[in-house]
Design a protein around this nucleic acid. Structure first.
Lengths: 116, 116
DNA sequence: ACCATAGCTGAACAATTGTTCAGTCGTGAA
DNA sequence: TTCACGACTGAACAATTGTTCAGCTATGGT
């Protein structure tokens, strides 16, 4: 593929070198994709701050239909981001991924005052 | 909308409180959307490590067509993430957003050894 | 057994998106 | 001016995705 002469061979080499961690990049792209939907991101924030919350309470908090929340949670569950646990008729969800927990924490701290 | 009785009123309130920073959440969702495409993320990594790189070199480095790179760069430019500058017939791109610079730096450090 | 509640599921649908194709603009060299 | 090259643009297309709708499962109460 590098048949075409490079405009700046050094830059091209540097750029290529930046992609050694290719698999990691794909992994992060998948993560970002899951974070890219506003409603889903809202759900994650809720799970971050109110772990062990029921689907219907989640739906009420973010203003989504319970069906939509259910679909979103299925996605998050299949990615291992959340865990579920029955409590009577309700099913309580919590954040189960440390990386995401950390990201949400940083994001939440962005607009607040913190000295670190 | 909160006509339906909450399963756990306290949790529901906590969840709702987590969404005070609503606009910030939308903003981040938009950011994450731009980071969610593997190829675009690769491009950003290249721009991060090899600023002032030409489109064709960028395309060669990530294995994309120059057209596709052009489209991606237009998106990033319209979001203010990259800046461009002519040099002869080539157009050199660089990362122009500090937040993204920081994110890419953290991501790049994830798999490497670092003591901080 | 019966019903109401809480949540799940699959199909259908509209909307968004990344890529390719074909053509265009601008720059540099002959 | 003419040509080649690097990059941009718009339309078309396929693929993905978030939501809604209708119906289902499972639990708890009567």
């Amino acid at each position: 593929m590098p048949d075409v002469p490079a405009i700046d061979p050094a830059k091209r080499a540097e750029a290529a070198a930046a992609l050694q961690e290719d698999h990691t990049i794909d992994e992060w792209a998948r993560r970002f994709a899951l974070l890219s939907d506003p409603n889903r991101l809202r759900l994650l924030f809720c799970l971050h701050r109110a772990p062990g919350i029921a689907v219907s309470d989640l739906a009420a908090a973010v203003g989504m239909s319970d069906t939509s929340v259910s679909h979103a949670l299925r996605l998050l569950r299949s990615s291992g981001w959340v865990s579920s646990q029955r409590s009577g008729r309700a099913i309580l969800y919590s954040l189960a991924d440390d990386t995401i927990h950390d990201i949400l924490h940083r994001l939440g701290a962005t607009h607040s005052d913190e000295s670190g």
